[in-house]
C-alpha cells in the first residue's frame, strides 16, 4: 500500500481549495472591472475604489464597525481569558457545567436567536440601542471564541514554570506578569483577532442590537447587496478582505519576531 500524496489526493486538494478560493478570487478580480456589468470584463480600472471614497454613508458605517470591533474585541479578550482561567485552573466549582455550557452554546447557536434575545433584553431594560448595545452583543459572542483559544493554550501550559518563579520568591502577581502572561499572550492575541474580525463581519446580531446612527458596515453592505450585484460592493469587499488579511499577516509577523526572545 502506498502512503503519501497520490494524484487522486492532489486532485481532491486542488478541487477542494479551488471551491473555497475561486469565488473570493473572482470577487476581488471583478472589483477592478471598468464595466458596470459584472459578467463583462471591460478592462482594468480602480474607478469603483475612487467612488467609495465619495460615499460618506459607507465611510461612516465603516468607522462605526471599526470602533465596535476594537472595543468589543478588547473586552472579549479580557473576559474570555478570565473564563478560560476559571475553566482550566479552578477545578470543579459549583455551577461549572452551566458556566461551560453558556460559553460553548454561542459557538453554534443560530445568530437570529442570540440577536432577538439581546434586543428583547435591551428593550425590556429600557436601554436605547446604539453603539454600546452592539458592543455588548459582539463581546458576548467574541468572549466565547477567546475562551476556546486561550483554554487550549492553558491546558498544555507547563505549570512548573510558575512554581519555579514562586519558589524563587516572586509574588503571585509578579509570577502572572513575568511568566504566565507572556506564555499565553499569543493565544490571547489570536483570540482577540478572531473576536475583532467576527465583530467586523457580523450582520445579524448588529441588525438586532443597533439603533439610529449606528449602522455598521455589514448592514450597509447587506442593503446594497439586496439591490443587486454592483462593482462598488466588490470594491468594498476587497478592501475588507485586504484589511483583515493585513492584520493577520501583521499578527503572524509579531509572533515570529517574539519567538527568538521567548525561547532564548
Amino acid at each position: 500500500m502506498k502512503r503519501g500524496l497520490q494524484p487522486f489526493h492532489l486532485a481532491v486538494l486542488a478541487l477542494g481549495f479551488g471551491f473555497l478560493y475561486v469565488p473570493i478570487a473572482l470577487l476581488v478580480l471583478y472589483s477592478f472591472n471598468a464595466s458596470r456589468l459584472v459578467t463583462v470584463w471591460g478592462g482594468f480600472s480602480t474607478h469603483w475604489y475612487e467612488a467609495l471614497l465619495g460615499n460618506e454613508a459607507l465611510l461612516a458605517s465603516a468607522f462605526v464597525s471599526l470602533r465596535v470591533a476594537l472595543v468589543s474585541s478588547v473586552l472579549a479578550t479580557i473576559l474570555g481569558t478570565m473564563a478560560a482561567f476559571a475553566l482550566v485552573r479552578f477545578g470543579r466549582f459549583s455551577g461549572r457545567t452551566l458556566f461551560a455550557g453558556a460559553l460553548y452554546a454561542p459557538l453554534v447557536m443560530p445568530e437570529v436567536i442570540i440577536g432577538l434575545s439581546l434586543l428583547l433584553l435591551f428593550v425590556g431594560l429600557g436601554i436605547d440601542r446604539g453603539f454600546w448595545t452592539i458592543v455588548a452583543g459582539h463581546t458576548t459572542l467574541g468572549l466565547c471564541f477567546v475562551t476556546v483559544v486561550v483554554q487550549a493554550r492553558l491546558a498544555t501550559f507547563d505549570r512548573s514554570l510558575e512554581e519555579a518563579a514562586m519558589d524563587l520568591g516572586a509574588t503571585p502577581l509578579a509570577t502572572f506578569r513575568a511568566v504566565t502572561l507572556p506564555l499565553i499572550a499569543p493565544a490571547m492575541l489570536a483570540g482577540c483577532l478572531l473576536a475583532f474580525t467576527l465583530s467586523l463581519d457580523d450582520f445579524v446580531i448588529a441588525s438586532f442590537t443597533s439603533g439610529p446612527g449606528s449602522t455598521t458596515l455589514p448592514m450597509r453592505i447587506y442593503a446594497q447587496v439586496r439591490l443587486g450585484v454592483t462593482p462598488e460592493v466588490n470594491a468594498i469587499s476587497t478592501l475588507l478582505i485586504g484589511f483583515v488579511g493585513f492584520i493577520l499577516l501583521g499578527a503572524a509577523a509579531i509572533n515570529r519576531l517574539r519567538k527568538p526572545q521567548g525561547s532564548g
Partner: peptide, 18 residues
C-alpha cells in the same frame, strides 16, 4: 475563509450563480 466576511462570501456566489 472563516476570517473573511460571511456576507461577502455569499455575495460572491450571487455574482457567480445569477
Amino acid at each position: 475563509p472563516f476570517w473573511t466576511s460571511f456576507l461577502i462570501r455569499i455575495y460572491a456566489w450571487i455574482m457567480i450563480l445569477k
